[in-house]
Design a protein around this nucleic acid. Sequence first.
DNA 1: TTTAAGCTTCAGCTTTGCTTCATTCCACCG
DNA 2: CGGTGGAATGAAGCAAAGCTGAAGCTTAAA
Lengths: 226, 226
Amino acid sequence: MRILMLEDEPKLSAFVKRGLVAERYAVDVISDGLGGLEYAETFPYDLIILDLMLPGLSGEEFLMRVRRRNSFVPVLVLTARDTVQEKVKLFDLGADDYLTKPFAFAELMVRVKALLRRGPVNRSSTLRVGDLELDRLTQQVKRGSRRIDLTAKEYSLLEYLMQNPERVLSRNMIIEHVWDQSFDGITNIVDVYVRHLRSKVDDGFNLKLIRTIRGTGYMIRGTQEA
Amino acid sequence: MRILMLEDEPKLSAFVKRGLVAERYAVDVISDGLGGLEYAETFPYDLIILDLMLPGLSGEEFLMRVRRRNSFVPVLVLTARDTVQEKVKLFDLGADDYLTKPFAFAELMVRVKALLRRGPVNRSSTLRVGDLELDRLTQQVKRGSRRIDLTAKEYSLLEYLMQNPERVLSRNMIIEHVWDQSFDGITNIVDVYVRHLRSKVDDGFNLKLIRTIRGTGYMIRGTQEA
DNA sequence: TTTAAGCTTCAGCTTTGCTTCATTCCACCG
DNA sequence: CGGTGGAATGAAGCAAAGCTGAAGCTTAAA
């Protein structure tokens, strides 16, 4: 799950980012409107958190432009004003939810999860492929009855695979969903992490869930068959 | 345990606060209704103590608004009038208990504890994880047969962990529950206190109860396993 | 006013995970 | 049944996260 945060106050963004990362989201923080727009148009975010007070381009302007690109990313707006007019305007512009500052982190978290859940991909909170189970609430992974400990990146990768079972995912797509902005250039990082995952998820089991599609990418599947 | 107190008479609020702090609650005092509403909506309090005579927004109004947000936080009302009508009105508005001024501190304390105990989180007064025991009534902590002395913050932290055994708690969540205000930005205060706790709770024992989940936060668990 | 206890910050040190790179392996091609 | 390019793998450097001791600060107690 990849989140873009538009916030120019470093303390706040650092605090929020730390919390989101702890929940295993890949978070990009951008501090000005124009730069944010560029990011929003370049990467496939699952959610945007938008502070209305933004240098370079107002929050309203940003929201309009994103929506004009007929993008349906959920947008959570952070605002200082809490009036009815404000609310109406925001929903008009296409915001999906809003939060007035100051807010408790727990409250932000609740809304983030709610917005992500209602997206097209995520109905349920538990993903299943074969006898492999990933619980997004507690972030626990089990194969059969055996618990599996994953690092943050391993977890995100597995989550992405399991969101798209039986579908071949290219290395580029995987990088764009699982890694954040800190990434550049050509790399075999996906291969390496698939290896890590396999050693924890598939090793010692008869049925291998993660498959390589030569020349294309990877796929997860719970059934036998060639 | 976090308490919000709405009281505009400084002497009284100082007196009560000191008493509550001595009992290891984290107490925020706000002296006007509107500000109090903001706090109540922003932070997750376990209890609200409300003086009916309040500038800015009447106590009744406050109560109504809090309840309209369908918040189930217990509210203890302080009032000067002691009539049947008054009582009925208060309970109608959603008060959970009330106290007429003047009152003895001990009396307040009894009611506070009663309300906290019946809250959604606190069914039993003793928390247990492995051979570690925390008694909320007497605020005593024991591991096996050995008594452990904790400071106020250490106690709150341990209590929060033990309320959520086997669940990973992020630093942000911990800060919001254990410390009064959300901290500005980034701090490692949680790390430091976990260290303090460990030195008292885990050091010298074979089975370590408090675990670090790297990149995420901390967890308490009483069973062995990996 | 002095003293002590607890709270918070900070910096350096350790551990772990992230990423790159070089080498080896293997599927698919002719 | 070799050859070739994509994939797998192990190892190693690097960077981030967490640990820890100590010091400064605040508050309460004597």
